Amino acid sequence: MAGSGGASSSGLRERKKAETRQALRTQAARLFAERGFADTTVAEIAEAAGVSLRTFFRYFDSKEELLLPDLAELFDRLARELERRPADEPALVALREALLTVTSGPRTTLVALLHPLEGAADVVTDRLVYTFMKSEDRFAQLLAQRLPPGPDVDLRASVLAMTALSAVRSVLRTIRQRRETEEVPVGTFARLLRSAFTVLAEESSKV
Rank of each mutant, 00 (worst) to 15 (best):
V159H: 03
A196T: 01
I45V: 15
E65D: 14
A94F: 01
L113H: 14
R84P: 02
K16P: 00
K17A: 12
F132Q: 06
L147I: 06
P106M: 03
V153K: 09
R169C: 01
V123K: 14
V159Y: 01
V171K: 00
S204P: 01
P149F: 09
R54G: 13
S10R: 12
A48R: 13
S158K: 12
P185R: 03
V153N: 03
R156Y: 08
G6T: 01
A87D: 14
R25N: 12
A87E: 15
I45M: 08
R77S: 11
L92T: 13
E73W: 12
S166N: 11
A196C: 08
L71E: 09
T174C: 07
R58M: 07
R146T: 03
P106R: 12
E180A: 10
A98F: 09
L24Q: 05
A79Y: 01
T131V: 11
R13W: 02
L114P: 03
V111C: 00
E14W: 10
Q22G: 07
F197G: 13
M1Y: 02
Y130M: 03
A43P: 02
F32G: 11
E118P: 13
A91R: 02
R146K: 11
F56V: 09
Y130T: 04
L95D: 04
D122P: 08
E83T: 01
K206M: 09
G5D: 15
A91I: 03
E203V: 14
L71H: 08
E118C: 04
E118Q: 10
E14K: 13
T108G: 15
E97R: 00
M162Y: 06
T26M: 03
T174G: 07
F189M: 01
I45L: 08
L193Q: 00
E180Q: 13
E64N: 05
L143E: 12
T125H: 04
M1F: 03
D154Y: 11
L12E: 15
F56Y: 14
A7D: 15
Q22Y: 05
F57R: 06
L53H: 13
P148L: 04
I175C: 06
K17Y: 02
R58P: 03
A196K: 00
G3T: 10
A94K: 02
R179G: 15
F189L: 09
E136S: 13
A87C: 06
T41S: 15
A49Q: 07
V111L: 03
S158F: 10
E203M: 08
S158M: 14
L200W: 04
M133I: 13
E202L: 15
A120G: 05
P151A: 11
V124T: 03
S195A: 15
G5R: 11
V199M: 09
V111E: 01
K16N: 14
A121F: 06
E44Y: 04
F139D: 00
L67S: 01
S8E: 15
L100S: 07
S10Q: 12
P185Q: 02
I45F: 09
R15K: 14
L155N: 12
T188V: 06
T20F: 03
